[in-house]
């Protein structure tokens, strides 16, 4: 059963027509077929959050999602839109400046989760931030600087909006 299936995926606003095997996860197709390696693979079972992407604006584990089921949906990854995304970039800047990045392996997933969080809840409390990070492991930071970075991104984005 080697049957390739033609699939059309909309990733970061760009349409990709690819022939894939139906048993490929979205993570495998992003990394191996489309060469988008910013989304990481680690635990393979939805526990670590390194493979988080947005599907129609909702954050999901790409390792638990069949690529074939992501057809017709808007997929967003850490690479972002080619023309640049101010919100994503602000989150990335806050992570870098606040010391939230150490080894950086969890960072893309954390940044994506933050984008989803701030989309739903632009001014989250500390508890809400921590809740939003459940399902994301970071072994380096102990999360303190990650929480601080998300607070920083939220307040900077709020100031941007006021302007």
């Amino acid at each position: 059963m080697n049957d390739l299936v033609d699939v059309s995926l909309q990733v970061n606003g760009v349409r990709y027509d690819v022939a894939i095997r139906p048993w490929r996860t979205l993570l495998e197709v992003l990394r191996e077929t489309l060469g988008m390696t910013g989304t990481k693979r680690s635990c393979g079972e939805g526990q670590c959050g390194t493979c988080s992407v947005l599907i129609d604006g909702e954050v999901v584990n790409a390792c638990l999602y069949l690529a074939i089921e992501a057809q017709g949906k808007e997929i967003e990854t850490i690479e972002g839109r080619p023309e640049g995304e101010p919100v994503l970039q602000q989150i990335q800047r806050s992570f870098a400046e606040k010391g939230a990045v150490q080894c950086g392996f969890c960072t893309p997933g954390m940044v994506i989760a933050t984008k989803a969080l701030l989309g739903d809840n632009p001014q989250p409390s500390e508890d809400e931030i921590r809740e939003a990070l459940v399902g994301h492991l970071c072994r380096c930071t102990g999360y303190v600087q990650i929480v601080e970075a998300i607070q920083d991104a939220a307040s900077r984005l709020a100031r941007e909006r006021l302007r």
Partner: peptide
């Protein structure tokens, strides 16, 4: 800030 942090945060490391 860590020099490689922007690269890592962008998923490009």
């Amino acid at each position: 800030p860590k020099k490689d942090a922007p690269l890592k945060a962008a998923g490009r490391a």
